[in-house]
Design a protein around this nucleic acid. Sequence first.
RNA 1: GUGGCCAUGGUGAAGCGGUUAUCACACGACUCUGUGGCAGUCGUAUCACGGGUUCAAUUCCCGUUGGCCACC
Length: 362
Amino acid sequence: MNNFKIAKTKKGFRSGILRTSHGKIHTPFFMPIATRGSVKYLHNDDFAQLKNEIILSNTYHLYLKPGLEIIKKAVGLHKFMNWDKPILTDSGGYQVFSLKKMRKIKEEGVEFKSTYDGSKHFFTPEKVMQIEETLGSDIMMVLDECAPYPCDYAYAEASSAMTTRWAVRCKKAKKKNKQLLFGIVQGSIYKDLREKSAKELTALNLDGYAIGGLAVGEPAQEMYKTLDVVCPLLPEKKPRYLMGVGQPEQILEAVRRGVDMFDCVLPTRNARHGFLYTKLKLAKDLSKVKYNILRIKSAKFAKDLKPLDNTCSCATCKSGYTRAYIRHLLSVNEPLAMRLCTVHNVHFYLQLMREIRYNINR
RNA sequence: GUGGCCAUGGUGAAGCGGUUAUCACACGACUCUGUGGCAGUCGUAUCACGGGUUCAAUUCCCGUUGGCCACC
């Protein structure tokens, strides 16, 4: 049974539906990030208006806090966080990269030092599967190593080969249930390593394929080149996920190359820093996306009683909150500022994806 | 009124006869890509005013102005 159906393709773009045990998701889509079980500052009331169909959460962080016992008792992450739509869980592979001072990689797995109390935890592919099964996410990611950039060939070769071996172990360890398991293509910016990784993972017949190890500091052109190498090698009928990307134009470029899924901290983190996306303009032929950046903390907005973006239909812009007010809230660290800005930026990203889908299906 | 102490970015503080005048916070400009509300880069001072000593004064001396303390 196939849980992914492509309804329409157009010059490399594809649009369809991904089905999970908590509902369907229209592709291509963007996942807001809820690392520790919450999209920072957002309430379910906000999601009701944003209409996002999925969120992303994190194995490493949830395992450390609050720990699996309470999540098991709550009968899974969905119930625990009161979210009944799909969840994708990242495996901790990115933490291999981002917490490089606090971990050791071995063939067997990764030893992490907790960022909370320094305690040691050993993550093997098998253990990660067990954790993700306890969390009950709809889409589980295999444990991988997200290699840094720049990365020499020998390291990238060894690292991506190990990621593939870990994927084999993940698949073996996975119980037969409705959770989907995605593999992760690695290989840094090296064409042959990416090809090898893609081919070997494809042979495992996983439920979907992610492209990892990008957006770690390489030039955007390297990212696009890598997509050009990898996407054609991935099975057409399986969803493709570009991890951690990215800026709106990068998302468009990736969708153009056949990617279906995205996640990125930019809209949420930037919102907290008063860096707001406005004036979304997507060309009908999907040739380009334009937008403005509004740095709401700038002094020039101190007396500006206009909404953040008069072309935006998000709850923040539609309900009368002004630039001057939001700037004020941000400058005195009022949590409401974070919420208003996060709603706005997440809406921008979801709107971008809606318009991309609309123009593919048109 | 008399005596003492003090005056350094927006704020609070270092500093020393020769420095690119240091730090924190704030402010302003940037950065942020499978999230630590984080972190970083850069910018912002005619060292209260006037005079003197000195090769050289933010630094030492005198005066002015302002502030704090004590005493009458």
